[in-house]
Amino acid sequence: MDITLIFDFFPKLISYLHITLLILVAAVAIGLVIGVVIALIRIYKVPVLNRLAFIYISFMRGTPILIQLFLIYFGLPALLTLVHIDASRANPLLFVAITYGLSCGASFAEIIRGAINGVEKGQAEAAYSIGMNEKQMMVRVILPQALVIAFPNFANSVIGSLKDTSLAFTIGVMDMVGRGNTLIATSLHALEIYLTLSMIYYGVVICLEKGFSLSEKKLQRFEGSLSAEK
């Protein structure tokens, strides 16, 4: 093993970090939209849709991301041929973004639902008691508090998704790991390359954790001042 090679590989690999981050950002964005919609469907128990939402969440929670990735990769083009769209030559990034978006959507939906249900019941009653309507109650009282409850789980879920992106290379995406694999083929220094990759992932996760914990502190200022008074 030649540790100094890490210095060679580092710039080559980190120049592909933006692909990894792009997947993450796309996945989180798609996931948020899906998550909010599904959470609302489940909270208001919209008939039929509630049932479908339940199955969707159970399926995403019940299968490995790798299997989901392959299902979308092979299944989506097959579905699209029904409407005469040829997706067989589409950029694999697209499939990755959709898969991770669907996966995030399921976890976000549960996180949001849990958080809204987690707000004390008295808060809604208090809002009604001062004459708010349901929408005002939701937007002004419940959601801000739910956000605080949801945030740590949300942060965990995002970091989990970042780590999951390491599997995108299996359908041919040229992210950091994909690039690493091509480097292995030419340089035969697989261990050094995976060490470098690990360091980059670790670095990104640490940054995300720091960022999230700072935001969390800001979000929780009212909780914080409460415990400070004790």
């Binding site: 780590k163 390491s166 599997l167 697989a190 995976y194 060490l195 690990s198 992932y201 670790y202 996760v205």
Partner: peptide
């Protein structure tokens, strides 16, 4: 704890798979 939780499991498998034989 921080390193293992901060890196994908794929990395752990590859690092051990490649590094341990060495």
């Amino acid at each position: 704890v921080s390193f293992l939780r901060g890196t994908p499991a794929l990395m752990h498998i590859m690092l051990i798979y490649l590094g341990f034989p060495l």
